[in-house]
Design a protein around this nucleic acid. Structure first.
Lengths: 114, 114
DNA sequence: CCTATAATTCGAATAATGTTGAAATAACGT
DNA sequence: ACGTTATTTCAACATTATTCGAATTATAGG
C-alpha cells in the first residue's frame, strides 16, 4: 500500500459520520446496507451521505453494488486489513510497537490536552 | 479509546507531512528528534512544522520533552497501539477481518490519484 | 408513457485545515 | 544585560472539506 492511498484511507475514516458509517457497514457484514438506510441511521440528508460514501469508496474502504433501485454499500475488509498492515509495518516498526499498552482514558477526556 | 480521540488520531495521520513526520519519529525510536531537524528533513518552514507537531501532540501520537534549547519529539508507541486496537476491535469486528489480503497495488500508483 | 422511489450530481454557502513570515518566548553563553 | 539559537504563537491568507436543497439520472411498476 502506497502512502497516498494510506492518507486517503485515513482521511476517509477521520470524520465523525464516515467513521460511523464504516463501523455500521462492518457490523452489517458482506450483505451491506443501502445508501438510504445509512443516511437514516446516521441522521444526515441523502445528498450528504452520498458525498461521504463517495469518499469512502474513493479511499477503497467500501464497495458498492446496485440492487434494483438501491445501491448497497459494504465494507471492504481487505482494504481495512491493508491499512492496518501499513500502519503496523511502516508506522509501528514492523511489530507490535510496545509490549502491551493500557488504552484506558487518562483523565476525563473532556478538555483534552494541549 | 473514545471515538473522538480516534478521529483526532486518524486526522493527525491523514496528512502528507504529518504521516512522514510520524514515520520518521517511529524510526528514530524513543530518543526522538528535535523540531528543527524534523522541519529540515521534511522540508517545511519551522512554523509549519510546529503546527503539525501540535496536531500530532494533540492527538496524543507524539510526546515532547525539552532538552536545552531544543524540543525533542518522539513517537508514542502506546497511542499508536491503542489506535490500532480500536480499528481492529471496532472497525474490523474483533479479529483479522479477512484471512489474508494481497495488498499489492492494482496498477502503477506512480502518479497517485487526487 | 407516466409516476414513484433511490441515489447521485450540482452549486453555492459555511466551516475547517494548511501555510507562512514576522513577532514573541525560552535557554544558553559571554 | 546582550546576542544567538531553537521553537512557538500570531494573524492573514489560501486551500480543501462539509453541508444540503434543488435538479438529474436510474430503476421499477402501472
Amino acid at each position: 500500500m502506497q502512502a497516498g492511498s494510506v492518507i486517503r484511507a485515513l482521511g476517509a475514516l477521520a470524520q465523525e459520520h464516515r467513521l460511523a458509517v464504516f463501523r455500521l457497514l462492518v457490523q452489517a457484514g458482506p450483505e451491506g446496507m443501502p445508501a438510504g438506510a445509512l443516511a437514516e441511521a446516521i441522521g444526515v440528508p441523502a445528498s450528504s451521505m452520498s458525498f461521504h460514501l463517495a469518499q469512502l469508496a474513493n479511499a477503497g474502504l467500501v464497495a458498492q453494488r446496485r440492487q434494483s433501485r438501491s445501491i448497497i454499500y459494504s465494507a471492504d475488509y481487505a482494504a481495512m486489513n491493508c491499512l492496518m498492515a501499513y500502519l503496523t509495518e511502516n508506522c509501528c516498526g514492523g511489530a507490535a510497537c510496545v509490549p502491551a499498552a493500557d488504552c484506558s482514558p487518562p483523565v476525563s477526556e473532556a478538555k483534552d490536552v494541549a
